[in-house]
Amino acid sequence: MILRGEYGPRWWEVAPAYVGLLLAVGLPLFAVVWLWVRLGWWAGLLTAGALAYGVRAVVLRRREVAARNRRSAVRFTRADIEAADDRGFRRIVGRLLVRDGWTAKGVVVNGAGVVHLVGTGADGRRMGCAFERGVEAAGEDGPRLAATLRPVSAAPDDDGRDEPEGLAPLLLVVSSGRFARYRVVWAARNGVRLVDGGQLLRWAAGENLRVLLALDLDG
């Protein structure tokens, strides 16, 4: 390899890794065998069980950390949002919800095929999310067909569980633009949270939805 101009790690560079691997495997095995011989089979089995439990806990912890890191890495830019069609826009919002600890399942809510997202948070709070795009950005305040939210409890995946005490369902309408004035009034009267284009960009850049909407102050 060296004669051909190709270089790899030398033996003294990889030796510490091999020694560490041998110790990690050999020492626990030696401890199990020693206890088996000195104290009896029960001591060896207990030690082996404790080691297996410890290894499993470490593996699960590493997986949890890796999953959390993957979720926290979910980011979207203004270009991503503007380039998305309705389905892509809904997928972006769904991934942001999952990143922040919510479940998000698409459900068809009417004969026109309109899809909302429904799910629950880590605290058991139910969530329903609808979408509006396009007209809001133009600043039109006149009447128009708008995405309205039916009660979350009417969702097909409702399992009949009661809401945690003090936590009303979270109802969201997310837009890539700004909301017309009448929609802001409608939302305030009906307990619906609006996420406009500016808030969406902050959310997509990494801000948690609970911080964005001050959800921890609810109740």
Results as ranks from 00 to 15, higher is better:
Asp86Phe: 01
Arg87His: 08
His116Leu: 04
Val108Thr: 15
Tyr53Cys: 14
Val59Gly: 00
Asp86Ile: 03
Val14Arg: 13
Leu35Met: 12
Glu64Gln: 14
Val33His: 06
Ser72His: 08
His116Cys: 06
Val74His: 00
Thr103Asn: 00
Gly106Gln: 08
Thr47Ile: 09
Arg70Lys: 11
Val58Cys: 03
Lys105Gly: 02
Val115Met: 05
Leu3Thr: 12
Trp12Arg: 13
Val135Trp: 13
Leu21Arg: 08
Ala67His: 09
Phe131Met: 03
Gly26Trp: 04
Glu132Ile: 05
Gly5Val: 07
Leu60Thr: 09
Trp102Leu: 09
Val115Arg: 03
Val114Met: 03
Arg125Cys: 00
Leu97Cys: 07
Gly20Thr: 10
Glu82Gly: 01
Leu22Glu: 06
Ala48Ser: 15
Leu27Tyr: 15
Glu64Val: 07
Ala83Gly: 00
Trp34Tyr: 15
Asp85Pro: 00
Ala84Leu: 03
Val118Met: 03
Ala17Asn: 06
Gly134Lys: 09
Val115Tyr: 02
Ala112Arg: 14
Gly124Gln: 06
Arg133Ile: 03
Gly111Gln: 09
Gly124His: 04
Val32Gln: 02
Gly40Asp: 04
Gly128Met: 11
Val115Thr: 09
Thr120Tyr: 13
Glu132Lys: 04
Ala43Thr: 05
Leu3Pro: 09
Arg78Gly: 08
Val37Lys: 11
Ala130Asn: 11
Val93Gln: 01
Ala15Phe: 12
Leu60Cys: 07
Ala52Arg: 06
Asp85Ala: 02
Trp34Val: 10
Arg71Gln: 11
Met127Ser: 08
Leu117Ser: 00
Val59Phe: 08
Ser72Phe: 13
Gly26Ile: 07
Phe76Met: 03
Phe76Trp: 10
Gly8Thr: 13
Val59Asp: 12
Leu29Lys: 05
Val65Thr: 10
Arg75Trp: 00
Val25Tyr: 12
Arg95Ile: 02
Arg91Ser: 11
Leu45Cys: 10
His116Asn: 15
Ala50Tyr: 05
Tyr53Asp: 10
Gly128His: 06
Leu46Gly: 15
Gly106Ala: 15
Arg63Ser: 09
Trp102Cys: 03
Asp80Thr: 08
Leu46Glu: 06
Arg62Asn: 09
Met127Cys: 12
Met127Ala: 14
Arg63Glu: 12
Gly111Phe: 07
Val37Arg: 14
Val19Gly: 05
Arg133Gly: 06
Trp102Ala: 01
Ala57Asn: 05
Ala52Ile: 07
Leu39Asn: 09
Asp100Gln: 06
Phe76Ala: 01
Leu23His: 05
Arg56Val: 12
Phe89Trp: 08
Gly111Arg: 14
Ile81Phe: 04
Val55Pro: 00
Val109Ile: 14
Glu13Met: 13
Gly121Tyr: 01
Val33Tyr: 08
Arg78Val: 14
Ala24Asn: 05
Ala83Leu: 03
Trp34Phe: 15
Ala52Phe: 15
Arg91Phe: 06
Trp36Val: 00
Leu23Val: 14
Thr103Phe: 03
Arg56Cys: 11
Asp85Gly: 12
Thr47His: 06
Arg90Gly: 08
Arg95Lys: 12
Gly134Arg: 10
Ala17Leu: 13
Arg10His: 05
Leu23Ala: 14
Leu23Cys: 12
Arg63Thr: 02
Gly128Leu: 11
Val14Asn: 00
Leu60Val: 12
Arg4Pro: 00
Ala48Asp: 01
Ala52His: 07
Val37Ser: 08
Gly40Lys: 06
Ala130Arg: 11
Phe131His: 04
